[in-house]
Design a protein around this nucleic acid. Structure first.
Lengths: 267, 267
DNA sequence: AAGTGGTCTAGACCACTAA
DNA sequence: TAGTGGTCTAGACCACTTT
């Protein structure tokens, strides 16, 4: 008998039912989590195999799998066939959404804030752009102050990559009167000094950012290749001109294991 | 036989092995998710019971439970004994971390930005404060620019509530030379016009906010009473004085189902 | 070929909630 | 008390990765 089953056993085998403080799989998960936190299992290393854990803890395989599943949900491990349960490292890149100095323009010609931040962290930014005409989701329609009818908008959809890996989804929505017959409609033009909006004569004098967090949809999980236990931040930026009219809504999906959003504010 | 098992059956019963595009539990989850999204199961309503799902899909109970677990991980349902699997609604409060106008001071005397935002949304803010001397975590120590020795700091730990429910954890860390012998050491003093730092003669001329997202720790899950599939945003604000010296670090844990962080920026 | 995790089944029993 | 979900077991077989 293993040391573990001395501490806490399935009730069915007990003559006297002791208070089951926590389910067995939680206790197993607690023990493994401790090992991860104290360096017994450093990032990149594998936990003991399932058969090994079964003999260690003296439970059924289903129970240790349940424990491992818990750790996966917490974003601590990734499990894959044939390779084991491997401890995960989170190494996010920072993304400066507002900076004290205007360093973005200086960072390099033709780079936007995201690209210059990525380059500054010695990684290689890239993007795939596509343009289409769509019915906007409600969140976008409201922010563009459009009526609730069948009004379409221009969607500039980007998948941004870092070192060739998919990193974030960034969708920009423009009203027709802004985007039609401009370079915004051409996926080939990806950037311009001061931004694409400025290049076609629009001045974004202020913007409002809204940041939420949730679990990814199955679709997002697939396109961004997200592991279990990886939430996403949703970043919505609405830009306005001097007349307080919305120019565009940018909706960015930022996986939590690869992003830290930074705001540098002068009070 | 149910309609479902006609479409996709466990391989063990097949003479000819058809390509198993996806596991059974994912197909069940897809079907239920669709029902949630199209209004068949509106927020607050319960999905069919597990025995019902077992007969509908013609699978073992373990498989429908696996599907339901997936939906729970995505934050779509909450499951509890005796009550069923209930569709969840996310109703976050917005929290303005930087605003175009300085409306916070006007909102009410003795209210900070958080409290005035909550009040503005017709909810009742509250907080429990405790003060202690601690060794700071590395993330805090670095930002306070303290040496890597055993230097302690002052921790003002708050659990903020809305309508009596725990809402967020907000920990402020101060160097001793800032906090010692001031009202910062007294949990009773919760606010002052212009903020507690201003009240003791410190001017925070700028700050840097860093926002990440991850799954909660078991501890956070418990103190904030978080359901499965609820990620948290981590908000770290480091404040500086005119000499670029850090005055404090505030680390806030914001559950995703109750928070939207807002930044209003003038370009 | 051996070892690893992934999927599915079948059944038992416990614990909570509501009528 | 009936019905709901929560936990655990035991076993079978499949699929991937490594040697």
């Amino acid at each position: 008998m293993s040391w573990y089953s001395e501490l806490s056993r399935p009730y069915k085998n007990l003559d006297l039912v002791v208070e089951m403080a926590r389910p067995l799989y939680e206790e197993v998960a607690d023990h493994l989590r401790e090992g991860i936190n104290d360096g017994t299992y450093p990032p990149g290393s594998a936990l003991p195999s399932e058969p090994a854990l079964v003999t260690t803890y003296g439970t059924a395989r289903g129970t240790v799998r349940r424990a491992l599943q818990l750790l996966a949900q917490e974003g601590l491990i990734v499990s894959s066939q044939g390779r084991g349960h491997v401890v995960r490292a989170w190494e996010p890149l920072w993304w400066t959404l507002t900076s004290w100095e205007r360093k973005h323009e200086a960072a390099g010609p033709g780079l936007d804030a995201w690209e210059s931040d990525v380059a500054q962290q010695s990684r290689k930014p890239g993007q795939r752009v596509s343009v289409s005409i769509v019915l906007p989701p409600d969140t976008v329609r409201e922010r563009l102050e459009l009526p609730a009818d069948q009004t379409t908008v221009v969607l500039r959809s980007r998948i941004r990559t870092v070192d060739g890996q998919p990193w974030q989804i960034s969708d920009s929505y423009f009203p027709h009167h802004i985007a039609d017959d401009t370079i915004l409609m051409t996926p080939e033009n990806t950037s311009a000094p001061g931004g694409l909006l400025a290049a076609i004569g629009h001045v974004q004098v202020r913007y409002r950012d809204e940041i939420g967090t949730r679990m990814p949809t199955p679709r997002e999980r697939e396109t961004l290749q997200l592991g279990t236990g990886t939430p996403v931040a949703t970043h919505i930026r609405t830009g306005y001109n001097a007349d307080d009219q919305p120019l565009r809504v940018m909706l960015t999906i930022c996986p939590g294991d690869r992003h830290v959003l930074v705001y540098e504010i002068t009070a």
